[in-house]
Structure formats: C-alpha cells, structure tokens
C-alpha cells in the first residue's frame, strides 16, 4: 500500500522541485515573450548555475553568498553571448522556427561538451546554504534548503512581477511580446530587448541551478531534464505567463511526487512527459486557460 509518510515526504520534495521548474519555466517565457523563440538550451543555464557556483566554491574557496552573487552575472554573460553569436544572425536571416530550435539544442550540447572538457564528468554538489537540519515533522524530513528555495522563489516571482508591471524595461519587454513592430514604432529598441531577455532568462536559470544543487546533484548533463521540466511547467501555465509557469511548475512537482510513489523514481520523467503531451493535446493554451474556457462554455 502507499505509505502516507513516504507520500508526504515526496510531496514536500516535489513542491521544492516544482518551484525550481517554475523558475526555469519563467526563463522560457521571458525569451518567448520578447521574440517568439523557444530556447531549448534553457536547461543549460541551470546546469551552468550549479557548476559555476560549485567551481567558485571549491577552487577559489569563496563563501556561498559571494559565489552565488558572482555566478549569476557569469551565466547571464553566457546567455548574452548565445544571443549575439547564434540567435541574432539566424534571426536576421529570417531562419525558420525549427532551424532556430535546432540551433539552440545544438548550443546546449556544445556548452555541455565544453563543460565536460573543462570541469570533468564527475557529478558534484555542495552544502546547503545553512548548516543543520533537516527539520523533522512527524516522519517527514524537510531540509533547510527547501526554505531557501521557497524564500528565494517567492522573492523572485514577486520581483519579476514588479519588473514586468512597474519598470520601463519590463513594460518594454511586454510591449515587444504583444506587437514587435508597434513597439519598434514607439521607439523601443526591439533587438536590445531580445538581448536583455536572454540575459534575464540565463540569470533566472542560474539562480534555479544555484538553489537546486545542494538538494540534487549537478553534472554537465543535467540540463536536459531541467529544461524539459521547465518547459512543461511553462506549457501547463499557458506559454508566456510567469505566474502560470510557477503554478504549472508546482503542479508538475506534485504530480511527479505521486508518480514516484506509484511507479518508482525511474518513471518520474516519463510521467512528466506524458503530462506534457496530454496538456499540449487537450489544453494547448495551458490548463488554467483551458479550464476557464471549459467553464465559460458550460455556463
């Protein structure tokens, strides 16, 4: 029979992981909203976040706060380079959607190979931000790292909301997503916005990677699962909506927790991908919009 404690433990873990998926999902949305491009290399930023932070910790002996603060701009610069070297030339030549998607996928593999050669293939992790724990609630262990994830996750979502609704740049990004030509006519530098979206998206991925590494391991090849799960989170939330992506991520994390209890840990990715296919086919505008429209149709 399903063990209640085990289920609760998995749900707690799934919740934390789901929030991470949500952050990655927002990364997808930021670039998509600015350009209509889906960056399949989103997961690589998560990997880089963990790997760069680990390298700074272990090789330079920095404290975790300094390493984390340094990691984010480093990864953001990689995102900017990716936009300048690969996406922009294709964009300017009017390449097809599929060609750009393939190029981002190839970029992901390229960055993975470079990481493999420079940092090695050993999986690695580092200590939680605060020592001690886990917090015991009945039989359920809650690591202190989860609170960091929750805290930073909430902070980031709130910060992004403010950025997109209150700041000039955030509003300009939203304007680009609604109508790039009209935005350009209003004097918004659309190309610079695309660059900014890659930087922001890479920074988001890096933060997710820094947060998740103490509770998971990181290695040169962890990008694809994170990227795919982040994409699924974004899809569930209706592609393009930041709050939807977070809700989608949490839903996905919880669903995966059930899948682990029911079928075993090996099938958690199969469960996630099946959810993706079902959502794509049944609610192509996201679950929340889909349910709303079903509701509207009924009444």
């Amino acid at each position: 029979m399903i063990d209640a404690v085990q289920l609760a433990q998995n749900l707690v873990n799934g919740f934390g992981l789901g929030l991470i998926y949500g952050l990655i999902g927002i990364g997808f949305c930021v670039i998509y909203n600015a350009s209509g491009i889906v960056n399949f290399a989103q997961g690589v930023f998560v990997m880089l976040g963990g790997m760069v932070c680990h390298t700074l910790l272990s090789r330079l002996g920095l404290p975790i706060s300094a390493a984390a603060v340094l990691t984010i701009p480093v990864v953001a610069v990689i995102g900017i380079l990716m936009e300048i070297l690969i996406v922009r030339p294709m964009w300017n030549r009017g390449a097809s959607t599929f060609a750009i998607i393939l190029a981002t996928l190839a970029t992901q593999m390229l960055i993975e190979q470079i990481t493999l050669l420079t940092l090695g293939d050993q999986p690695r992790t580092y200590d939680s931000f605060t020592a001690g724990g886990p917090l015991k609630l009945g039989g359920v262990a809650i690591s202190y790292q989860l609170f960091w994830v929750l805290g930073f996750g909430t902070l980031m979502v709130a910060g992004l909301w403010l950025f997109f609704t209150r700041s000039r740049m955030g509003r300009a990004l939203r304007a680009c997503s609604q109508n790039a030509e009209a935005a350009a006519l209003l004097g918004i530098p659309v190309k610079r916005m695309l660059l900014a979206s890659f930087a922001l998206s890479a920074a988001l991925g890096a933060i997710a990677g820094i947060l998740v590494t103490p509770s998971q391991i990181t290695a040169y090849n962890v990008g694809t699962p994170y990227g795919v799960n982040g994409f699924i989170a974004a899809i569930i939330g209706g592609f393009g909506s930041a709050s939807g992506a977070v809700a989608g991520g949490l839903l996905l994390g919880i669903l995966q927790a059930f899948a682990i209890v029911a079928f075993g840990a090996g099938f958690k990715n199969v469960a996630a991908l099946t959810v993706l296919l079902i959502v794509l086919l049944v609610f192509p505008n996201g679950i929340f919009a889909g349910v709303k429209s079903l509701w509207a149709r009924r009444t």
Partner: peptide, 16 residues
C-alpha cells in the same frame, strides 16, 4: 515549437 517539443517528448519517453 509545440510540435517540436511534443515530438521531442516522444523521443525522450521512448528513451526513458
């Protein structure tokens, strides 16, 4: 990109 991701997911599911 929806088609791309859905087919990509098919490949990943089969792999898993």
């Amino acid at each position: 990109h929806y088609l791309a991701m859905a087919t990509f997911a098919l490949g990943l599911i089969t792999y898993e």
